[in-house]
Amino acid sequence: MKERIVPIAFAACCVPAIWLGVQALTVGFGADPIAVVLNDLGYITFVLLALTLACTPAQIVFKWSWPIRIRKLLGDFCFFYACLHLLTYVGLDQGFDVHDIVKDVLKHKFIMLGMLTWLMLLPLAITSTKGWQKRLGFRRWKRLHRLVYVAGGTASFHFLLRFKTPRVETLLWMAVMAVLLLTRVIETARRRVLQS
């Protein structure tokens, strides 16, 4: 089981895409399919971001090692779904109208936060390989990848602003994000105390 964790996680990460495809070919997405696909992809991206961020705390708290082995995979898939989400917005939702999109991004915090999140995930996805880790040196690589915490924050507020009124579900997910980030803060503080 533990040896197969990577292929299992890979298969699991494909499920949402397959599921969307099956729905598209069978029952459809209701009256406003573009909105549904856009929101589903955003949701999947957010969940994968949370799962990626959960790997390290899982190691710290439960002393498990296997989550770290799928962290890169989860992060890459998170970026994959983020790209599909962005493409749906740019293409299907906005019809590739560059003028409208630029205006939308600059004028509206909601869109700006989403775009910023994707822009932060981009260098992380590119440098997620072993090769880049070596090229940058582990210290610099690690510093760069701390950007994912900021992305967790901007993604949360992007998710929150999507609804006219705050949703309980979104608030719960934000709490999850906060807990995941807090674990690291506590861990860092603990190490500092131990070192001194």
Partner: peptide, 30 residues
């Protein structure tokens, strides 16, 4: 031990939430 028990519990809730939300979403869509 550095993580209070409430965090453990919330983590478990979080996993449940994820699985639950996905299932519910799928059922609703169909």
């Amino acid at each position: 031990q550095i993580t209070p028990k409430s965090l453990y519990l919330r983590r478990r809730d979080f996993l449940k939430l994820g699985a639950g939300a996905t299932l519910l979403g799928s059922a609703a869509a169909l």
